[in-house]
Design a protein around this nucleic acid. Structure first.
Lengths: 302, 302
DNA sequence: AGAGTTCGTTGCCGATCCGGCAACACTCGC
DNA sequence: GCGAGTGTTGCCGGATCGGCAACGAACTCT
């Protein structure tokens, strides 16, 4: 939002340290340091006293802190007022998602929404894509984030994120050196796969069927986490999506190799709601927010 | 400052029109339109109802307007508190400046300062550079903006703006086609000059003395405005500075041609205070602000 | 004392945002 | 139907922001 300076400022005042505030916000300390400097420039005075063990507010800083609080509260007040207008006061939304999209996509997006609308509460439930659609049809979920769900005329997709299939392996595994792997080669590897209710599994099965190979998976599971663990432990390779492996890759625990084969274009996450159903204001706002986040996510990972 | 969105928003709400707000702020309508769009995105709702004859607040917009007011007031409160701490409450500063720097530099800078510190009042007086220095020494001015003032050990320059000498002429005048003019050629033109108490005149006299020419000015005046009028009316050419002609040039009423000759490097505006004198908090803050503005101005017109 | 730790700041660079300009789309009133 | 007024959008140059790495300052523990 556009009040970064004041948010940073207030947080530094609270934590008494640029470093801590930076950690709390997950930004670089320099970013915060600059914003504070900008604020001091704007007011023409030092707002913090720099000490060896952090920052202490000056008298002027105290005055500005009061202002910062007022500003941030005031924005929250406006938000609440708008929520109320839209009937979103104390709304509740049931979100069901595939496990693989959880950490990297769903959670950040929900956190964002929740910051803007603190009075809306959620269920976040995990299931395989087949089950997600069923939950939607049974009115046990308002929004789902599914991977290649089976098409159904009363399921409406609001947005999609193309999410490539990859082979995840331990960094020392021989396959980690490869630039890409064809589906036919996977048959000879020690392999972990999700069970047949997963959209991911359905896609893999389609691909192998087309290529005539037979897979003999060493592990079948209904937990994406266990697929990751399998590969991380070096027990073999797992078929996963890029989104589900993002964090492990960036932290060096896994290496992924794109999987080649036909039908790969279809590999995508979809944000879906039930067609024709009138959602509560909170649910409508959240599903729109998820859809917007999805488009942004897709653009960033293009 | 960093609250642009809310300032724009409030102004549009007040004027009921992006156009009018844009005129009031002297920015492009598109800039404002975008900020409003951003704010609406941020709150996830339309804040204005677009009508054929302007913008009308929605209910949500009314809530946000209240917030905007709170925010802007709150910043003002912090400013006042800080002013008070620094003893700037109800301060008064006497600024003396050369006429040529008035419109393009001094006035905008003072307006900026005044917006940040509304309780500080000013005198803005105009005089020739020689007189300015005298005012400073007599303690009748706290800050002066002088053009090539005579050096004096108790006058301290805080910042400088290089300000080239130019020949100003009517757009139809023959000299308007030239890329530059040497000082020696000016002797043959119908010429207007300021009187000998002007730093500008002193510089011209130095230059002609060095080149051995004799000037026979058609008009000598103590008003920069009359120098501009002389050229604008097509009566002849005037020696002026780039800063003093900026507006007439951008609005097509005058054309300027750089003047060549030695000593031109010295042509500059200086922000000066009296050395050793303890200024009131308001005066010190303002002189610093003028100095900062000068450096910015210099950078922009480099 | 000196090495090490824990701070905040600064220079650099790439990505993003902002504002000006010009063209556009829309609505109203003649 | 057309012109005048309005807000919006695409494009582009310039400013800003954030991450990274290196630095300097001040405390702490040997």
């Amino acid at each position: 939002m556009s009040l970064t300076r004041y948010r940073y400022f207030a947080l530094v005042a609270d934590h008494g340290s640029v470093r801590e505030a930076a950690d709390a916000l997950r930004v670089a300390p320099s970013a915060i340091s600059r914003q504070i400097a900008g604020l001091e420039e704007e007011y023409g005075t030092a707002l913090f006293e720099r000490r060896a063990r952090g920052m202490r507010l000056t008298t002027a800083g105290t005055a500005v802190l009061e202002t910062a609080r007022t500003i941030l509260d005031s924005v929250q007040t406006a938000r609440s007022a708008i929520d109320e207008l839209q009937g979103m006061k104390r709304g509740h939304v049931r979100v069901w998602t595939v496990e693989g999209a959880m950490d990297d996509f769903v959670y950040p997006a929900l956190a964002e929404f929740s910051a803007a609308h603190p009075s809306v509460s959620f269920d976040i439930m995990v299931a395989s894509s087949d089950q997600l659609v069923q939950r939607l049809l049974d009115d046990e979920a308002e929004v789902i984030v599914a991977f290649n769900p089976i098409l159904h005329r009363s399921v409406l997709s609001l947005a999609e994120i193309a999410d490539a299939l990859v082979l995840a392996a331990h960094p020392d595994d021989a396959v980690a050196q490869r630039h890409s792997v064809r589906i036919a080669e996977v048959g000879e590897m020690r392999l972990a796969l999700p069970d047949r209710t997963f959209g991911l599994r359905r896609l893999v099965d389609d691909m192998v069927a087309a290529s005539g190979v037979v897979l003999k998976p060493a592990l079948v599971t209904n937990s994406i986490q266990s697929l990751r663990s399998f590969a991380r432990a070096g027990l073999g390779v797992s078929v996963l999506t890029r989104c589900a492996t993002q964090r492990d890759v960036s932290e060096g625990r896994l290496v992924t190799v794109p999987l080649q084969g036909r039908n790969l274009r279809k590999a995508c996450l979809k944000i879906c709601v039930r067609n024709g159903r009138t959602l509560s204001p909170a649910a409508r706002a959240l599903s729109r927010h998820l859809a917007r986040s999805a488009r942004k996510y897709a653009a960033e990972h293009a």
